[in-house]
Structure formats: C-alpha cells, structure tokens
Design a protein around this nucleic acid. Structure first.
Lengths: 116, 116
DNA sequence: ATAATTAATAGCCATTTGGCTATTTAATTT
DNA sequence: AAATTAAATAGCCAAATGGCTATTAATTAT
C-alpha cells in the first residue's frame, strides 16, 4: 500500500544512497555553484539521466536551483545536509552512551549492577 | 544494465533512507542489544517484513547479528554509522569553506557584477 | 527568422524495493 | 516425541528507481 509517506529525512538519505548523486554533491561542495551541464560533464550518463538525479537532490532539499535564462544553476542547501548528519550524530551518541554503560557493567570490579 | 555496483556507502545511506529501519537503529542505540522479536514488537508490519529490514541493515554493515540458539541478537556497528556521518561531515565542511570564500568575494569592496 | 544551445518531459524498460501470506528450519519446552 | 517458539525463505505483487532515446520548451546567437 502506498500509505508509506516518504519523509524529508527519507528523501535526504535516499538521495545520498547513490554514488553519482554523492559525486555531484561533492562537486557542488568544492565549486559552490554549477550549471546542469557542468554537473553532467564528468559523467558518461545521458543528459536526462543527470536531469533526473538533479531532481532527486532537489526534492530531497539537498540542492537549490536558480534559473537564469536557459541556464539552471545549483548549489548545496546546507541545512538539509546538516539534518542528515545530525540524525546520525544523535544516534551515534546514544549508542556510545550505551557502549559506555555496557563497558562499565562488564568491567565493574565485583560490584552489583549499578543503575542510573 | 546491472553494471551499477552498489558500494558499502550506497548501502549504508540506502538503509538509512527508510523510517522503519531508522527507528530500529534508534531502538538499538538506546537499548544496546535486541532480538529480532524485540525489533519487531513496536511495528505493525509482518514478521518477514522486519526480517527483511534487518537484513538490509545487516548487509549495509550498520548492524551486527549474533545467533545464540534460536534467538538472533543485534547491535549497532558503530564504524559504519560513523562512516556515513563522516561523508556528510567532510562535504559539509568543504561546502562551508566554499561559503566563506563566496562571502569574502561578495562582500569585497568596490565590486560591480552587472550580471552573473 | 533561423540555428544552436540548455535543460526538462515523455515514454519505455529492467531491476530493486517494501510489503504480504504461507512455509520451512531450527531450537526449546512439555 | 510432540508442541511451541524464533526467525528465515519462498514466492508473489505493486510501486519506485535508474537508465535510455526521442522530443519539446525556452533562451540566446547568427
């Protein structure tokens, strides 16, 4: 069933799950702003294929489009990238807390399990 | 053409691109280690559906399985999560460098850029 | 006005995804 | 030994994904 709504975070991570798109983001990160043609240049893929990738990045909010004349220019939308990073960071830190508690438990010298 | 090899990073981000799987990781981050049944409990989904999600997380390297008897226990594989985080972090920092350069350029005195 | 350029759409295809039910495998209980 | 329990597989389906070619739309040059 298509009751499965894709959240923005879903879209962000999904967009990051493709090497071509990550490479495009890497180009944008280094060069700031690029046209669709410039984003296409390094790849073998057909132009419409790249156009689709761009749209995926755009819909994920990772990239912002600015049209000027017939040229479309793109740049990274930092907030979206940070959001994805933050999700991981938050859960990694929870996990590290868990690890620390586990270690404390495992390594505790003949103590009974402490609680929090 | 299936010439498209999926890299580990592709798999990591793809695995993160689903809310159910992220929730499972969140549970593992907080509770350390959980069985397949415990990972299943909060969801309406059928058991084989969760089994599939677990396998996606496992193949992405995000989760490690330990079988003991008929119970399978899972915990987060921190390194993989960190790798995903690092990719974003690296490129965000590049992007921020770009922003700084852009700002320096835009705010430089006596400049007139008539068009783009 | 015509040609060239930039990039999106349309439409097609194969593969992957995420979901389900039914079944199987394996390990415990009783 | 039989029943129960934990979890994976098998097999099916609809939708989404990623790729292509051909075409269209829009803008800029000649």
């Amino acid at each position: 069933m298509a009751i499965n709504y894709r959240t923005p975070l879903d879209r962000r991570f999904h967009a990051l799950g493709d090497g071509t798109r990550r490479q495009m983001l890497a180009m944008l990160a280094r060069q700031g702003t690029l046209s669709a043609a410039e984003l296409h240049a390094p790849f073998d893929a057909a132009q419409p294929t790249i156009s689709k990738h761009i749209k995926v990045l755009e819909k994920a909010g990772l990239v912002r489009r600015e049209v000027s004349g017939r040229v479309h220019r793109f740049h990274i939308e930092d907030a979206a990238l940070r959001e994805a990073e933050d999700w991981i960071s938050l859960h990694r830190s929870f996990w590290e807390g868990t690890l620390a508690r586990l270690e404390a438990f495992v390594c505790a010298p003949d103590k009974e399990e402490g609680e929090t």
